[in-house]
């Protein structure tokens, strides 16, 4: 059980780190939103799943309730985060920002 929690937490951490590096390193607005939307969501999901499993360590009704609440957070993050990223990209497109193409400078 502990090993599973560790794996989940560390993979969550890995995805969050990769997402932060991606936000810093990608060349323009749209491509930066790519790690921000995908990796952050996945990292948060994995880390929270690890926490939900961890709280079941000593099984009781209260621990189960805590886990269920964390699962609810997971569901809402899973719905809200991609929707928000989509809304930001949509706003960029509607405002007329052209996407970056190969050979251009970083912006």
């Amino acid at each position: 059980m502990d090993i599973l929690v560790c794996i989940l937490l560390f993979s969550g951490l890995f995805f969050l780190t990769a997402g932060s590096i991606g936000i810093l390193r990608f060349p323009d607005f749209y491509s930066r939103l790519h790690p921000a939307g995908k990796l952050d969501t996945l990292g948060t999901l994995l880390a929270l799943m690890g926490l939900a499993l961890f709280s079941l360590h000593h099984f009781s009704l209260g621990a189960l309730l805590t886990s269920l609440k964390i699962m609810l957070i997971i569901i809402f993050v899973f719905v809200a985060s991609p929707t928000a990223t989509h809304a930001i990209v949509d706003a960029g497109v509607r405002a007329g920002l052209a996407p970056w193409t190969k050979g251009e400078k970083r912006r």
Partner: peptide
């Protein structure tokens, strides 16, 4: 007026009651 985006609309409709 611009057509409201389906993804944003549905996402928000899911979230608002909660």
């Amino acid at each position: 007026w611009t057509p409201p985006d389906l993804i944003i609309k549905t996402g928000c409709r899911l979230m608002i009651p909660f």
